[in-house]
């Protein structure tokens, strides 16, 4: 795997994503989700909300990095809040 040029932060990132997907799969098997309408203007399943949350998180990071001098941890904190809010109320 050395050709993939792994670093600790990227390995942690992908581990987090893999654990998240595995967890969501287990949750889905245990309690299948039903599409519902929350604050988002469309009806979403749990998986949809995860996708929207993760995509939004990526854009939060890009905005903080591109438009401000803030630390990347600010973007990560914003993303955690965003992801939790979308999963709960989206």
């Amino acid at each position: 795997m050395s050709w993939m040029a792994w670093t600790t932060p990227t390995a942690l990132f992908f581990t987090f994503i893999a654990v998240l997907l595995a967890g969501m799969t287990a949750w889905e098997l245990r309690a299948p989700s039903v599409p519902r309408r929350g604050l988002l203007p469309i009806a979403t399943t749990r998986g949809d909300r995860l996708f929207i949350g993760l995509l939004g998180s990526a854009y939060w990071h890009l905005m903080v990095i591109g438009l401000t001098d803030w630390s990347i941890w600010t973007a990560t904190a914003l993303s955690v809040v965003w992801l939790s809010a979308v999963m709960r109320w989206g």
Binding site: W3, M4, A5, W6, T7, T10
Partner: peptide
């Protein structure tokens, strides 16, 4: 995933990064 790894490194080849 490799591209993600490359994007956080100054890399010329896998051993020079």
């Amino acid at each position: 995933m490799t591209v993600v790894n490359y994007s956080v490194q100054d890399i010329f080849d896998p051993s020079t990064r």
